[in-house]
């Protein structure tokens, strides 16, 4: 038996950098360093663990939709231990929203061939957390999402989803789309050997025509949502800061009383 896992990874602007919008109100990707979204490292990690715990032949493909530099994200995932990579890149993709991204990912996943898709819980720039659900809807396969624990055995994926009101045990047959949270287990660091090996691993590039997609279906033009304005939040007006000289708690209480919280 073999198991084909596709891990979807996103290349995002560094959250600790100064992120802003470009003139067309898309995320500015030029002025800020990018990296593999930290939350997608957990997805790569779970794919590797499923592979290590399996008697089957497991092949892990990492897939990204993004600009030229997104190759860095693929390289990182390959150096962690994934087998090969697919980069969907096309100028017409600029400004694609979640609905459009899920379309491109679905086409690419189908073309690559898969038994299991593993995504992160959310991208660290958009933070929508909806692409995995959209992908499952498009592929017509079960969504087993937001798992803090995941395992695959005999064509069945099982996992634990810690929700607001309850912690749930989930189960579905493959093929399926899974997403994992940052509670699923620390992601490994690439080893030196891994980094060297990654240089020789295959990275395929696909554009829209490879996926039978038209430019109008994606990008800003194909977007289902329009951003009318983006304004920088005014800096919070500087607050009062006191040093505790034995009365700090009482001073704070007085402030809370003044603001009518007490």
């Amino acid at each position: 038996m073999s198991l084909r896992i596709v891990v979807t990874v996103k290349y995002v602007p560094d959250a600790t950098g100064d992120r802003h919008f470009a003139d067309d109100l898309t995320v500015d990707r030029d002025d800020v360093d990018g990296l593999l979204s930290e939350l997608d490292e957990y997805a790569v990690e779970q794919a590797l663990q499923i592979s290590e715990n399996s008697d089957d032949d497991v092949e892990i493909t990492v897939l990204t939709v993004g600009p030229e530099d997104a190759k860095d994200a693929l390289r990182k995932a390959l150096s962690m231990g994934a087998d090969k990579a697919i980069h969907v890149e096309d100028d017409d993709l600029h400004g694609t929203d979640a609905i459009g991204t899920s379309l491109v990912l679905a086409k690419a996943v189908e073309k690559a061939g898969y038994d299991l898709v593993i995504s992160g819980m959310a991208s660290t720039d958009g933070v929508m957390g909806v692409v995995p659900a959209l992908l499952a809807e498009r592929l017509g396969v079960p969504q087993v999402t937001l798992l803090s624990e995941v395992s695959v055995e005999d064509g069945t994926v099982k996992g634990r989803r810690d929700g607001d009101a309850a912690s749930e045990q989930l189960e579905a047959s493959l093929p399926a789309v899974v997403s994992v949270t940052d509670q699923s287990g620390e992601a490994r660091y690439p080893s030196f050997k891994g980094i060297m090996a990654a240089k020789k691993k295959p990275v395929q590039s696909w554009d829209l025509s490879d996926l039978d997609l038209e430019a109008e279906e994606v990008g800003l033009e194909g977007a289902y949502t329009t951003v009318d304005s983006a304004t920088e939040r005014p800096a919070r007006t500087a607050g009062t800061i006191v040093k505790d000289e034995g009365e700090g708690g009482k001073q704070l209480a007085a402030f809370l009383a003044e603001r009518k919280f007490v």
Binding site: R236, G239, T240, I241, V242, K243, D244, G246, E247, G248, G249, K250, Q251, L252, A253, F255, R259
Partner: peptide, 19 residues
Amino acid sequence: VDYGVVGDLFDVVPQLTEE
């Protein structure tokens, strides 16, 4: 912050609670 206290939370927080 609107209001900040530079200090050890184990001094400040219990005093705040009592107050």
